[in-house]
Amino acid sequence: MSALQHIDLDVRKGEFVSVVGPSGCGKSTLLSTVSGLLTGFDGRITVRGDEIKGPHPDVGVVFQEESTFPWRNVLKNVEFGLEMRGVSKEERRRKAMEILTMVGLEDFAKSYPGHLSGGMKQRVAIARTLVMEPSILLMDEPFGALDEQTRIILGEELLRIQRALDQTVLLITHNIQEAILLSDRVVVLSARPGRIKAIVDIKLPKQRDSTLLATDEFAGLVGQVWSVLREESLRAFAQEQNNDEETTHA
């Protein structure tokens, strides 16, 4: 069975789009295809008309799992991509410090990731991607391993940076609030094989922060997304149980 089917999605420049869906629906697979890390599927993905056949220099990826390099300090982690591209030492240092200031880690430039909290490490990973100035940012549950408060704060920060750099963002998440708070549109995927079940427009003001979480308007949007997602989650849950039974009987 394929992970995804009939996915047809256009993301406009400068738009922030989140993808939510039941676990195992192929959310991460979707991101892998767009990032060019997964090839050999039926279909076409284009960036400004260029077909994606491998990692694209305009596309930056932030991964779900811990991906900072423990053998490099924070600064050298952020410099990594520029170093690989052969950017001069002074320039990459300047750019890396700029981004580190943006994510609030300028005081930790010389620290090693092993000494940082999960939230800080993830900020390093985000900074490492941002410093490459990708016009398109793909994020696979970047805050998945963090606690609720850190998650909300980092989300706000991300939104601020995205607006400042006018980036296009595709965010994979399983957190409905996070998706709504950050996005212009929320795409709800169905249970496996993932198809687009609904696209919810988030008509909240462009300038927003987490105080919106308490508003009725926000609650209404959560209800709207959840009503679609609930049905799919139940289906995914049933699928999972069937799979379990199959494997135990096999």
Binding site: G36, L37, P55, Q64, E66, F69, R72, M84
Partner: peptide, 24 residues
Amino acid sequence: TMLNVGRSLNLSAWSNFRHILLPA
């Protein structure tokens, strides 16, 4: 994930080995 970081930056096989695989 570490290796994917290298891939997403289009690193050469040698760079990938030298800068990611070996130190990791």
